[in-house]
Design a protein around this nucleic acid. Structure first.
Length: 281
DNA sequence: ATGGCTAAAAGATTTAGA
């Protein structure tokens, strides 16, 4: 199975190149973030014509997550257990949930498409919301893996955290001043390993940015950052056979500011064509 | 001026992104 994650930054603006990418790269499951639309606004037809069904979770023009798949999806969830909400003037437990998580089962794998809150600034309520959100993600992931030992599970998406200094090529993002690089954010990201998931792309691709700001010629200057990840449980990680970061998708007409990240996994059973194992053919 | 792009909304500016 070829699994991709991509913050598309409005699916309605970029549906053509999104579907073209999925087809060209032979993607079986594409997790999207920042679709910026409600389900009734989602361009389903373009995906269906290319052989994908789509699950969508969007509440308004902000955030929004979706998963397109060539394979049947089941057990769809629009939030993880304990996920906190956020709204202006509401930080408490009564705050409404945002559309930042979508989970499905596909081909025996639990896939979560995640759009981690930005944080906005170090002293903003959105920053503490981000940390709480990540803590709840860790707890619910640990619980999901405890409930089904050996479950192949992937947390994929835009984590809005730059784990290492080597992932930060943007001189405007500075530790002590900016979000994405603060010690608490990095600690929250690395703590996901305690729940049993690790970055399956980095061992194969130690270098590579996934985002370049639209402003100030960041892409031509290659002042990017690495914030989009595929984290896998141990059984998922053990099945990874390849990975790629598609920098070329930042070029051309109306690109997203993020590029896709892809992992290929082989969990055994039927081969990639869905046919019987090679020994029978 | 110090947020310079980009996108969406019942908008003609504001909110959000990172």
């Amino acid at each position: 199975m070829r699994l991709a994650t991509w913050n598309v930054n409005s699916i309605r603006t970029r549906v053509a190149r999104t579907v073209e990418f999925a087809v060209r790269e032979d993607i079986d499951v594409l997790a999207m973030q920042e679709i910026k639309c409600k389900p009734e606004q989602f361009p389903y037809a373009a995906f269906e014509e290319a052989g994908y069904q789509v699950e969508v979770h969007g509440l308004n023009q902000w955030n929004g997550v979706a998963i397109a798949s060539r394979l049947p999806m089941s057990d769809v969830r629009t939030s993880f257990d304990g996920m906190p909400g956020f709204a202006k003037g509401h930080e408490g437990p009564d705050a409404p949930l945002e559309a930042r998580a979508l989970g499905v089962m596909v081909d025996g794998v639990r896939v979560w498409s995640l759009y981690v809150p930005n944080g906005r600034s170090l002293n903003d309520p959105h920053y503490t919301y981000k940390l709480h959100w990540l803590e709840a993600l860790k707890t619910s992931t640990a619980a999901e893996l405890a409930a089904t030992p050996g479950l192949p599970l992937a947390l994929v998406g835009d984590f809005n955290i730059i784990p290492f200094d080597s992932d930060n090529g943007d001189p405007d993002i500075v530790e002590g001043v900016s979000t994405h690089v603060s010690p608490p954010e990095r600690a929250a990201f690395f703590a996901l390993a305690d729940a049993g998931v690790t970055d399956v792309v980095r061992p194969l691709l130690p270098e590579g940015y996934t985002y370049w700001d639209y402003q100030r010629l960041k892409f031509p200057r290659n002042e990017g950052i690495r914030i989009d990840f595929i984290l896998g449980s141990s059984s998922f990680a053990d099945a990874v056979t390849g990975a790629s970061i598609h920098r070329e998708e930042r070029k051309g007409e109306q690109p997203s500011d993020h590029v896709p990240v892809v992992a290929e996994i082989d969990l055994g059973g039927a081969d990639d064509d869905g046919d019987l194992p090679m020994i029978f053919s």
